[in-house]
Simulated assay, not measured.
Amino acid sequence: MPKINGNEIRPGYVLEHNGGLWSAVKVDHVKPGKGGAFAQVEMKNLRNGSKLNERFRSADKVERVRLEQKDQQFLYETDGMLVFMDAETYDQIELPADLLGERRPFLQDGMTIVVEFHDAEALNATLPQKVQCKIVETEPVVKGQTAANSFKPAILDCGVKVMVPPFVGQDEEIIVNTETFEYVERA
């Protein structure tokens, strides 16, 4: 695995540090008036989710890990485990449902997601950025209310509550951003 200098760390990099795999969440480059510059890195453990703040000087060498990304198709959920299938090899894997966190409700039958592996160990799962959902409950459209840039609450078929423009009605299909939980457009 390639070693990089401490000042080359960027958000999203996966590093091997203290015997664990860490994802760089936030990186601040600090140049104090006295002493050398360093990178203040907020990291998240990919195995247990713990967080760590670490200081890396430019002379420090750290191991950057490249994760293998594979497309996996969602099949079903059983006992808190999500079962996925590799589209090429038809191998099935089980991942804990809490791996997706608060984005779990957006996972739909047959959806293809990207799973990141390190030596055959699944560490991370990413949903598509945009997902199509149906509105099951929202307030009716009121004439003359579209002049202001106002939004109204709506409950989706997956149980998630989002804010939608006033012209969107019940039983309509919409596109939702899975990262920000925001309305994007009508489907």
Results as ranks from 00 to 15, higher is better:
residue 133 C to P: 02
residue 23 S to N: 10
residue 96 P to D: 01
residue 151 F to Q: 12
residue 174 I to A: 03
residue 75 L to Q: 14
residue 15 L to R: 08
residue 114 V to T: 14
residue 22 W to M: 08
residue 93 I to E: 01
residue 120 A to V: 09
residue 145 Q to Y: 04
residue 170 Q to G: 12
residue 96 P to N: 06
residue 123 L to V: 01
residue 102 E to N: 11
residue 4 I to Y: 08
residue 71 D to Y: 00
residue 105 P to M: 02
residue 73 Q to Y: 03
residue 114 V to M: 09
residue 150 S to L: 15
residue 68 E to M: 12
residue 125 A to P: 01
residue 152 K to G: 04
residue 87 A to T: 15
residue 136 V to H: 02
residue 73 Q to N: 07
residue 85 M to T: 13
residue 158 C to S: 05
residue 147 A to W: 11
residue 12 G to H: 08
residue 82 L to I: 05
residue 151 F to P: 05
residue 157 D to C: 05
residue 1 M to N: 09
residue 113 I to G: 04
residue 34 K to D: 11
residue 122 A to N: 06
residue 181 F to M: 10
residue 164 V to G: 05
residue 47 R to L: 15
residue 156 L to D: 04
residue 86 D to V: 06
residue 134 K to T: 06
residue 124 N to P: 00
residue 110 G to L: 01
residue 174 I to V: 13
residue 165 P to D: 02
residue 178 T to W: 00
residue 121 E to A: 11
residue 51 K to A: 07
residue 101 G to Y: 07
residue 57 R to H: 06
residue 174 I to C: 03
residue 79 D to K: 13
residue 127 L to S: 03
residue 74 F to N: 02
residue 127 L to F: 02
residue 50 S to Q: 14
residue 35 G to H: 00
residue 81 M to F: 11
residue 103 R to V: 05
residue 161 K to Y: 03
residue 51 K to H: 12
residue 19 G to F: 02
residue 22 W to K: 10
residue 96 P to Q: 00
residue 69 Q to Y: 09
residue 187 A to K: 10
residue 150 S to E: 14
residue 34 K to T: 15
residue 129 Q to D: 13
residue 68 E to D: 14
residue 142 V to E: 12
residue 156 L to G: 02
residue 117 F to W: 14
residue 48 N to H: 13
residue 104 R to K: 13
residue 152 K to T: 01
residue 27 V to P: 04
residue 133 C to H: 06
residue 69 Q to N: 14
residue 52 L to Y: 04
residue 76 Y to M: 10
residue 133 C to Q: 12
residue 42 E to G: 07
residue 80 G to E: 04
residue 90 Y to C: 05
residue 176 V to A: 08
residue 69 Q to V: 15
residue 25 V to R: 14
residue 115 V to H: 02
residue 14 V to M: 01
residue 80 G to P: 05
residue 35 G to A: 05
residue 105 P to V: 03
residue 85 M to V: 15
residue 31 K to E: 07
residue 187 A to D: 07
residue 98 D to T: 09
residue 170 Q to L: 13
residue 166 P to Y: 01
residue 27 V to S: 08
residue 123 L to M: 05
residue 20 G to F: 01
residue 7 N to L: 12
residue 106 F to M: 06
residue 173 E to H: 09
residue 132 Q to C: 08
residue 13 Y to R: 04
residue 81 M to H: 12
residue 20 G to N: 05
residue 1 M to G: 11
residue 180 T to Q: 07
residue 63 E to C: 07
residue 172 E to L: 08
residue 34 K to C: 09
residue 107 L to K: 06
residue 11 P to F: 04
residue 36 G to P: 09
residue 16 E to L: 03
residue 38 F to T: 03
residue 85 M to K: 14
residue 184 V to E: 11
residue 151 F to M: 14
residue 86 D to R: 08
residue 146 T to K: 14
residue 153 P to R: 13
residue 15 L to V: 05
residue 160 V to E: 04
residue 82 L to A: 03
